[in-house]
């Protein structure tokens, strides 16, 4: 038990000495790289404020979500659908407005897939993309 503790302590002291001896910029770069590497797999949620045409085409949230999923599926297939993962978080059938939460890493793919909506008999007009639900709602007006 004591031997394990001594190994751990010696390791920590060795790292501390190396940090003190080496250049501070190198240490900063290494830390930044480490933090970035941790962020790679992160889901960066984004909110897309949309309007749709024709008005009154969708009556329920699920209906619009299903349509958006089929649009993405039609354009990029199941792999991208799993990545984009569009979810309707706000729906106003009266004003034909909605807010869709999606994975921000696939912003271009999601927007590009909206071009396929006309083949399914509706059109999605992106109003704006934001990082918070509050600002997305502000964009919808």
């Amino acid at each position: 038990m004591l031997s394990v503790l001594s190994i751990v302590l010696s390791g920590i002291s060795l790292v501390t000495v190396l940090v003190l001896l080496s250049d501070s910029t190198v240490v900063c770069k290494a830390l930044t790289w480490f933090m970035r590497a941790r962020k790679v797999g992160r889901y960066r949620k984004r909110y897309l404020a949309i309007m749709y045409y024709p008005p009154g085409r969708f009556k329920e949230t699920g209906e619009l979500e299903k349509a958006l999923r089929s649009v993405v599926m039609r354009s990029f297939g199941v792999v991208y659908l799993a990545g984009i993962d569009p979810k309707v978080v706000y729906f106003d059938p009266g004003g034909s407005k909605a807010i869709v939460k999606f994975n921000g890493r696939f912003k271009v793919e999601f927007l590009a897939s909206l071009a396929a909506s006309s083949e399914l008999g509706f059109k999605v007009i992106p109003v704006g993309i934001s990082g918070t639900f509050k600002s997305a709602k502000k964009k919808l007006g």
Binding site: Y53, V108, L111, A112, L114, A115, G121, K123, V124, P126
Partner: peptide, 18 residues
């Protein structure tokens, strides 16, 4: 027709990917 007429952002993203 209106359905064929897309938002510039949609067209731009489509072109970037294509």
């Amino acid at each position: 027709g209106i359905l064929e007429y897309h938002h510039p952002l949609v067209v731009l993203s489509f072109i970037v990917k294509l």
